[in-house]
Design a protein around this nucleic acid. Structure first.
Lengths: 155, 155
DNA sequence: CTCGATGCAAATGCTTTGCAGAAAA
DNA sequence: TTTTCTGCAAAGCATTTGCATCGAG
């Protein structure tokens, strides 16, 4: 494992991407550099539309399909995760190595909070094994109202 | 709570539905009776398409939209759950009172196995509380390969 | 030069809806 | 008769893709 300071650095992400593109013979274009940079710097959980908006502030000529295809590339390379929460829109987030988390989603304001729980991971692994399954991935999303929205509701 | 013997009976489901339709002023039609009966008798996790196929074996004139709208009605009444697993298709299953379960899904053959885990439920409730969330629902899906598909793969 | 990448527009795939005719109540 | 329901076809909507053109290597 990397040291704590460089574990989540942008440099690491850029290197991983460069390796992947090199191996696959993919080309480095101005559009791809723009899309990936803005993606890496974002908070995560962006829809294609969200990222496209950011990209177009810098270069209005970039097409939706390019952002779409670049995010797909990031997902295939393992640098991004593609998530579908309940609203029918795909969202993407940076996939930091050796880190895994799930999500709490506020159905009032759309806020997304990440969580990790070793205990739950172990239980689900054990339970899958008992059912004869070998797990490859899982989806664990908790929907509800965040503190702020509860306060607003009772005000 | 009902006695164990009638807890999951079709009679109970039919009664719950009758109550709901009565309260809402919804009408009992031949199509709705056919769709709901076939749905109640099925194993669960049916797509609209799946149920439509069953319905049309009995009455080829029933339209897709009628099955769609009837399932929506069942979901709104709380008699069915609408689920979206990774494949972009909505699936419906009977929502038995006082029972909750999550799913193991084989990404090879599509098999769906239900599971329940008190421990996990408690942990996620605790964790949500700590984050200031009041939970309304959750999605917990475990994807992997079932025993049969593992066997096939190594054969 | 060559082959992959881009931008646009059109195609998908599923869900949802408008509407005229059919049928409960 | 009045109001809801049905079936069909069309509209929505996010995601994907075909293709002529552009540009990295």
């Amino acid at each position: 494992m990397d040291t704590a300071t460089e574990k989540h650095s942008l440099t690491t992400l850029r290197d991983r991407l460069a390796d992947y593109m090199d191996k696959k013979g993919l080309r480095s274009t101005a559009q791809r550099r723009l899309v990936t940079e803005l993606f890496f710097k974002s908070d995560g959980h962006l829809s294609i539309e969200d990222l496209w908006a950011k990209v177009r502030r810098r270069d209005p000529k970039v097409g939706y399909a390019t952002v779409y295809r670049t995010l797909k590339m990031l997902a295939e390379s393992g640098i991004a995760y593609e998530r579908k929460f309940g609203d029918g829109v795909s969202r993407y987030e940076v996939a930091h190595e050796d880190e895994h988390h799930d999500h709490l989603i506020c159905t009032e304001c759309g806020r997304i909070v990440e969580f990790e729980d070793e205990e739950i991971e172990k239980l689900q692994e054990a339970l899958a094994k008992k059912a004869g399954f070998r797990l490859t991935r899982h989806v664990h999303e908790l929907y509800g109202h965040c503190r702020d929205c509860q306060a607003k509701a009772s005000a």
